[in-house]
């Protein structure tokens, strides 16, 4: 009996370590803001079903998001976002594949806030561009939270902002990512 317990314990322990290598979420949050300074009209949206996977050993970070999942205050803005700007029917997804360049500096077993640099490729509207972002990994009671903040230029992704709305829609979007991760069980 004792022997059996020991065997179970060995397997349980080793598997639990490896499982925590990969952290994931399907309910991450991305907000974007393309409001022109001083404009009374807020052009912002939030997507609360971001899929994110972080490999803490390799420092690899990926996320994917459905464009139609961005929620706006105004229904018409959401309609225009999908139909005219990001063309969600043609390009339903945006994704990011990158690595944490200073992953070694993060101690995933100790609570704390670790500033990180994330480098990778962001694909959106059918265009792929290199993106660099400052982010932070927060570890609290074993729970990992990944957050980043960066700016993209619409022109880089061939998203056309017509002259007519240039005083309302900024040429860049400030993007904030916020994902609370949990261990990926296989």
């Amino acid at each position: 009996m004792k022997k059996l317990l020991f065997i179970v314990a060995v397997f349980a322990e080793t598997t639990s370590i490896s499982a925590q290598d990969k952290q994931f979420t399907k309910t991450g949050k991305i907000t974007f803001d393309a409001t022109v300074p001083k404009s009374p009209e807020n052009i912002d949206a939030v997507n609360k079903s971001v899929v994110c996977v972080l490999d803490i050993k390799a420092g690899a970070l990926q996320f994917a998001v459905l464009m139609k999942g961005f929620e706006f205050d105004r229904a018409l803005m959401m309609e225009h976002f999908n139909e005219n700007y990001v063309e969600s029917n043609k390009y339903p997804k945006a994704d990011f594949k990158g690595t944490i360049s200073n992953n070694a500096a993060v101690n995933y077993t100790r609570d704390g806030v670790y500033p990180v640099k994330v480098k990778g490729k962001l694909t959106m509207h059918g265009e792929t561009k290199d993106v660099e972002a400052d982010g932070k990994i927060t570890i609290k009671a074993g729970k990992i939270t990944a957050a980043a903040d960066f700016e993209v230029l619409f022109k880089d992704y061939k998203i056309d902002i017509p002259e007519l709305v240039a005083d309302k829609v900024s040429k860049t979007a400030r993007i904030k990512v916020d994902c609370s991760l949990e261990p990926l069980k296989q």
Binding site: T14, T15, I17, S18, D21, K22, F24, K26, V51, V53, L54, D55, A58, A60, Q62, F63, A64, D95, K97, L184, Q186
Partner: peptide, 17 residues
Amino acid sequence: NAVTAYAQQTDDLISLL
């Protein structure tokens, strides 16, 4: 565990989900 971990070394982490 090492073997399973190795098998997971793919480029597309999201496909793991």
